[in-house]
Design a protein around this nucleic acid. Structure first.
Lengths: 259, 259
DNA sequence: CGCTGAGTTGAGTTTGGTCAACAGTCGTGG
DNA sequence: CCACGACTGTTGACCAAACTCAACTCAGCG
């Protein structure tokens, strides 16, 4: 299985056009993305459809809630948050998205984006125009199945988020989140004990269904308990076993891949 | 648009085989289900694939978490809950499902059911073997698109659940739930002010991320406020405007279709 | 008719929210 | 380069919403 060969730096200093234009075939995220179950010839055709995009800066919107859906996006580098905005103006953070993850599936229901996606740091994506993907899917059973597989994974991921939000204590929530993020780092071949949180405390608190002060206190407590070393957004997990205990048995049999 | 012609009774007194065998074409839920965007000829072929199932009794499992995925199920009558079980034994209620809704999409990610579905009352479903659906989808663009549409709707529905779980007060949560359920009744051509809750207080509390006592107190409070008339599982909404206020502005532009 | 389980109500406790002060970091511009 | 201001994050004191525990009511059922 092909994955990113080394830890991606937190910020991409120079992402040149040649880098942007490399094909799906050579993309290091290859195995994590859409083409996962597609034959070699088909992959070449898919290459023609999927285009790299100019990088986004921190705070840039990849798409906004309410806008017309046209493409699915694959995160290539950096990270994103997806949020739901309510009439009152408050927003709910739905997830944080790392390289290899696909954004936009919620819009397939009626061709309108139902949430917004915002870059948390300098980031780049691949753009997969859905009309062409769909057309292509007619002839490629593997792609058809893969699209549903990814949509379904989205559902599974949300179910895990719901489980975390349902009657869990603050410290369990944070522990579950950190454990899950660590696992995703592992999947990306990044050091699982060294987390570089791309989101603010406020965004994290919102995702966890807590206020920022509570999250802050939990980080302090975890440090006192000898579970973490915390330096602003750099988190080092020093005791995985203890972190698992703090997360409770609030897990399913299989580790989550996304958050 | 064809939908159920009259309010379905809470319990089905006699569901004979003839009833069970009626085709998708004549199914009153027609417009709500899989075939929604499929041509007349194709619908006939789909009929050959989808089969009605023997009815389930309260407490019966339609499918269990961890078992092999084979079919999608369409609720014909009655209702279901889906739940996630964690290692500790506690469970999280993910949703309640009324006629016309499709169950099993979370299993498309790896062909294993990731949650369990249990009948809340006497209920019946249609069974759509996925292998055949998928094969069929190769030739019918409408079905292919529709499958993704439904999977996506599942995601949107979960996002609404997450929004409700994130930092909302107990009374807001219950109000949001009741309003959404009322809307779903309306979609089914049932009286939107007269709710027959098929779930126990315990199950409802779990879904809302609360304890049963809190839910009970909220029902009492809503009754005192003149918003509801509560008689065990019969709920009558007597003041929709006030219910909307209690739900806060915690809603999106479009009403939820599922829960 | 009593048993069981579901639901309600009350009293007391606790977790996490609110409000406020403070510290540290970053970016801007003199 | 440093000074300033804005912003993010941390900490403390206090408060309240929801949880826990317990008693009690009611409906359904053998």
């Amino acid at each position: 299985m092909l994955v990113v060969p080394r830890a991606a730096p937190a910020s991409i200093p120079s992402l040149d056009l040649a880098e942007l234009r490399r094909s799906c075939r050579s993309c290091a995220l290859h195995a994590l993305c859409l083409p996962a179950s597609i034959s070699s010839e088909d992959l070449t055709s898919l290459d023609a459809i999927v285009r790299a995009r100019r990088p986004l800066n921190r705070g840039d919107l990849l798409f906004a809630s309410g806008t017309r859906f046209q493409s699915l996006f694959v995160v290539r580098s950096g990270s994103f948050k997806t949020t739901l905005e309510m009439n009152s103006g408050e927003q709910q953070v739905l997830g944080f998205h790392l390289p290899g993850e696909i954004l936009g599936f919620d819009a397939l229901s009626d061709d309108v984006h139902r949430c917004s996606a915002e870059a948390l740091e300098r980031a780049s994506v691949c753009d997969a125009p859905f009309a062409q993907i769909d057309e292509f899917a007619a002839n490629v059973p593997g792609l058809r199945r893969q699209l549903l597989r990814i949509a379904s994974r989205e559902v599974v991921k949300d179910h895990e988020h719901l489980m975390m939000m349902g009657r869990r204590q603050a410290q369990e929530r944070l522990a579950i989140f950190l454990r899950s993020l660590s696992q995703r780092y592992r999947n990306l071949q990044r050091a699982p004990e060294l987390l570089e949180l791309p989101m603010s405390r406020h965004e994290l608190a919102n995702y966890l269904g807590l206020v920022v002060e509570t999250v802050s206190r939990m980080f302090t407590r975890f440090e006192e308990l000898g579970v973490l070393r915390v330096n602003r957004k750099q988190i080092r997990i020093v005791n995985f076993a203890r972190l698992d205990e703090l997360a409770g048995d609030a897990s399913q049999d299989i580790e989550s891949e996304a958050c």
